[in-house]
Nucleic acid binder design. Structure first.
Lengths: 244, 244
DNA sequence: AACGGCCAAAGGTATGACTTATGACACGAA
DNA sequence: TTCGTGTCATAAGTCATACCTTTGGCCGTT
C-alpha cells in the first residue's frame, strides 16, 4: 500500500490534493487499531504517517488529534503516537463502533451492544410511557399493529424495517438523550440479527404481542407495564445469547 | 480576553508558545457549546478563533477537528464552523459529559446519567455473576461487608469512597467493555449525590443489605438474584428521582 | 421568475522553520 | 557495581505563509 493513494497521486504538491484525504487516513488507522492489527503499545510518528499515506503534516496531525480525542492513542514528545489499551477507548464513539463491527472482532462488539440494549430499552420504555409526546405515542401504537401485520405476512424484510423504526422511536421519545444516542447502534444490531439468520422465519406470536403491549402501555402512560413488556421482548434475545 | 494568553505572551513568535494552548481553546469552546452559550447554528471561523485566542491556524484546526469528531460542530467551506444540534452530539464522550456537568444544565446531565445507571447496573450485576474472576468476586464481598461497617459507623465520607469502589468494581468485572466505560460517570454521580446532601444521614439498612446481597449473589454466580438485588438498590434512586 | 455565470469568503492542504520536552546513553562519583 | 547527572538526538507542538478548492450569494441575462 502506501503510495497507491487511490487516484493518480501526481507528485505535484497541489495544496488541496484529493479531498477526504484526511478521512481516508483516519479510517485506515482507526480500522487498524480497532481490529488489533496495530496492537496497544505500537508507536507511530507523524513523519511515518506522512510517508505512508503521502500526506502533509497538517493532515497527519488532524488525524491523530481525532484518534487522541477518542482515546485510541496518546502522543508524547520524543516518543511518537502510541496506541492505547482498549480498556481506555471511548467505546461509545460511533466511529469506533463502526470500525469494530467491520473487524474480525465483530462478535464481541455485537454482544456488548446487545447487552446494552437489554439494559437500556426497558428503562427507555418506562421513560417513554412517562414523557413521550402524544404523536409519538400514537405512532408507536401504529407501528405495533404494523409489526403484527408484517410479521404474520412473513415479510421479514419489511418487518425488520418496522422493527427498527419501533425501537428507534422508543429511544427517541424516552426523553433521555443518552438513550437516544444509541438509536443507530440498535438499528445496526437488529439488522445484523436478521442478516445472520438469527431471527425465526416468522416472528413468534409472543414477540408480536409484547411489542403491542409495550406500545399500549406507553400510550396510556403505564411505566411499569411498558418496562415489563419490553423486558419480555428482550428475554428472547437474552436466551438466544445464552445469558440466562 | 484574547491577547491575555496567560503568561507574558511576548510577540516573539516563539514557535511553541504556551503548551496546553490547544487544550485551553478546546476547553473554552467546548464549554461554551455544552453550556448553550454558543447556540446550535452559531458560526465560528478559523480566522476568528486565531484572533480570539491568539493562536495559529494549526491549533485552531486541531481544536475544531476534535469538536467535529465529537459532533459538536461541522465545518463547511465558505461558511465556517457551525455548532450542531444537541441531538447529534456524542453524549457519551467523557469530555462532553464533564463540560455539561460544569454547566448550568448540570441537572439534566445528572438525571440522564442516573437513568443510565438504573438501566445498566442490574445487567452488569448479572454479567459479573456470570463472568467475574474469583478475585473480583471476593473483593466484592469484602466491599459489601466494609460498606455495612462504614454505614453503621455513620462515616459518610469513607462510605462514599467504598460505595464508589463497589459500583466501579462491578462495572469493571461484568465483562462488557461498554459498561466498564461508564465507571467514571457513575463515580461522578455518586459523589454528587452525597455532596448535594441527597443521601440519608446514615445509609438505610435495606440498602446495606442489598449491597451484600449483590456481592453474595455475584460470588456464587447467581445471575438472577444479583440482578434483582441491584435493581433493589436502584429502586431507592428511582424513587428519589420521581421515576416511580 | 428561472437559469447561469462570476466573485469572494472560508476551509483544506502543503511546507518549512523553530521551540520544547524527554528517552537514551555515556560518563563520572559513591 | 550502582546510582545520579549531563548531553544529545528525536519527535511532537506551534507558528507563518502560500495556494487550491468549494460554494453561497450576487448579478445579469433570458
Amino acid at each position: 500500500m502506501s503510495t497507491a493513494t487511490a487516484e493518480g497521486a501526481d507528485d505535484t504538491h497541489d495544496g488541496g490534493a484529493s479531498p477526504a484525504m484526511h478521512e481516508r487516513v483516519l479510517e485506515a488507522v482507526g480500522v487498524a487499531i480497532a481490529s488489533g492489527s496495530l496492537a496497544p503499545g505500537s508507536r507511530l510518528t507523524l513523519e511515518g504517517l506522512q510517508q505512508e499515506y503521502g500526506i502533509s503534516r497538517t493532515v497527519a496531525r488532524d488525524t491523530m488529534k481525532v484518534l487522541e480525542s477518542m482515546n485510541l492513542v496518546y502522543s508524547r514528545r520524543r516518543v511518537g503516537i502510541v496506541v492505547q489499551q482498549p480498556s481506555l477507548w471511548n467505546v461509545y464513539d460511533p466511529k469506533l463502533v463502526r470500525w469494530r463491527l467491520a473487524s474480525e472482532r465483530r462478535a464481541e462488539q455485537y454482544s456488548s451492544l446487545t447487552e446494552l440494549r437489554i439494559a437500556v430499552e426497558p428503562i427507555a420504555a418506562a421513560g417513554a410511557a412517562r414523557r413521550a409526546s402524544a404523536s409519538e405515542r400514537s405512532q408507536l401504537v401504529a407501528l405495533g399493529a404494523e409489526l403484527r401485520r408484517l410479521g404474520e405476512a412473513g415479510d421479514l424484510q419489511a418487518f425488520l424495517a418496522a422493527d427498527i423504526e419501533f425501537h428507534q422511536l422508543l429511544l427517541r421519545s424516552c426523553g433521555n438523550e443518552m438513550f437516544r444516542a444509541l438509536e443507530d447502534m440498535v438499528a445496526e444490531v437488529l439488522t445484523s440479527r436478521t442478516k445472520q439468520g438469527l431471527m425465526p422465519f416468522k416472528p413468534r406470536n409472543e414477540a408480536l404481542q409484547a411489542h403491542e403491549d409495550v406500545a399500549a402501555a406507553v400510550a396510556r402512560g403505564d411505566t411499569v407495564v411498558a418496562e415489563r413488556a419490553m423486558h419480555h421482548i428482550l428475554d428472547e434475545v437474552r436466551n438466544a445469547m445464552g445469558l440466562y
